[in-house]
């Protein structure tokens, strides 16, 4: 049997460096760009999110909050945060979903996970599931149509958020299926 006490003693010695902890505090405050190159589709998704964020800021401006000189504070695969010179911030979170034929199979991608939906689409003309994305959100995904002509709809439930909805169809460029925004006013 494994010596559990020895295991705990041993692994309690394993700690992140102070430098790494300090760095994450700096990253919290500073402009942060994604360190790894983005896949082409992700770049498209982020561009769509940026467009959406700008639309949101315009909307916010009409309610008396004026956003000027926006800069990207940081971004990752599914979120982008913008900040103006007054410290007002806009956070846009998106769920990425797309489908494409690969080697005769219809592969659905939700964030970074891939699902083979060929059998469901062939037999029933529909694929429906709740999947968990990288941030731990339960995302309801529904694909309807055929292997050649499909439509994806996604949704996720969270209270108190502002939803912006669109659906993805075969051949369309837009890849953001659902996103919401959070606006924080600076001091």
């Amino acid at each position: 049997m494994m010596d559990e006490r020895l295991y705990r003693e041993t692994f309690s010695r394993l700690r992140a460096s102070d430098e790494a902890k300090k760095e994450v505090l700096v990253k919290m405050n500073e402009t942060k760009k994604t360190r790894r190159p983005l896949k082409a589709l992700r770049a498209v998704a982020l561009a769509a999110m940026l467009t959406l964020a700008l639309a949101v800021t315009a909307n916010a401006a009409s309610n008396g909050m004026l956003f000027e000189n926006l800069r990207v504070v940081w971004q990752n695969g599914s979120q982008i945060m913008l900040e103006d010179d007054q410290g007002n911030q806009v956070l846009v979170t998106g769920v990425y979903a797309d489908a494409e034929m690969k080697d005769g199979k219809l592969m659905l991608t939700v964030d970074d996970e891939e699902y083979d939906i060929t059998a469901d689409m062939k037999e029933n003309g529909v694929f429906s599931a709740t999947v968990e994305n990288a941030e731990g959100r339960a995302v309801d995904v529904s694909v309807t149509g055929s292997l050649e002509d499909w439509e994806i709809a996604t949704s996720f439930e969270e209270s108190g958020v502002d939803y912006n909805t669109a659906t993805e169809q075969t051949g369309r460029v837009s890849t953001i299926t659902k996103s919401y925004t959070t606006v924080t006013t600076g001091e």
Partner: peptide, 8 residues
């Protein structure tokens, strides 16, 4: 941790 920071 940064995802946690921005988690609404």
């Amino acid at each position: 941790l940064l995802k946690f920071y921005v988690e609404p």
